[in-house]
Nucleic acid binder design. Sequence first.
DNA 1: TGATAGATCGGCT
DNA 2: GCCGATCTATCAG
Length: 212
Amino acid sequence: MTAPPPPISLKFYLGNTVEVAKQLIGMLLVRIIDGVTFVSRIVETEAYRKDDPASHSASGPTDRCRIMFETGGALYVYQIYGIHFCMNVVTEAKGVGCAVLIRGIEPLDGFPLLWSRRFPNEPFPQEDDRSARRRIADLTNGPGKLCAALGITKSLNGHELNREPLWVSPRPEEEAPRILSSRRIGISRGVERNWRFYEAGNRFASRSRNRA
DNA sequence: TGATAGATCGGCT
DNA sequence: GCCGATCTATCAG
């Protein structure tokens, strides 16, 4: 067993939120559950900034979004539609109120265990199951989906991303990924800002009608 | 493939 | 009381 890739410095998160959202594409998300390490590439993000009507922080700190006003490098997890969790990394300085939503990840290992958390009632597909390819992408190509697959709940709200059980690791590839941008998904205000970033052609990006 | 409704509840007005 | 940074099942074409 090789050691998991190390966390990036918390200083990274103090930068401009939109830049951090872009730079996160291609970085690794490392999650450890019961001693098992799951490594994924981040392939889709969205930036939410101060003075942004779409951001939970728009009306200042509340019980839900208080973590957004902490120093960059903390994890912000919230529940939506009563069912799903979404995970964000807090950015910029303490008191500002910005974060980057993680919307899509490409798992590099641990598929059977990810599957068992996403689809607890379905057996992991056989190798010759051609229809399973789509369901594999379905594992983590959305903010609620990836939190389910990685077992991320509000109990991790406020976690500092420099240690177990969750952190982000620098991009291992030398070559920068090809990044596209678009409007953010699922919001009704602040829609004109193109603050969604995703890797061109990656099927683990949600709404992946994104053939390069 | 695309549109639509339902689930389900915490957070906010 | 209303609605949401979502997802799934179902129906129509």
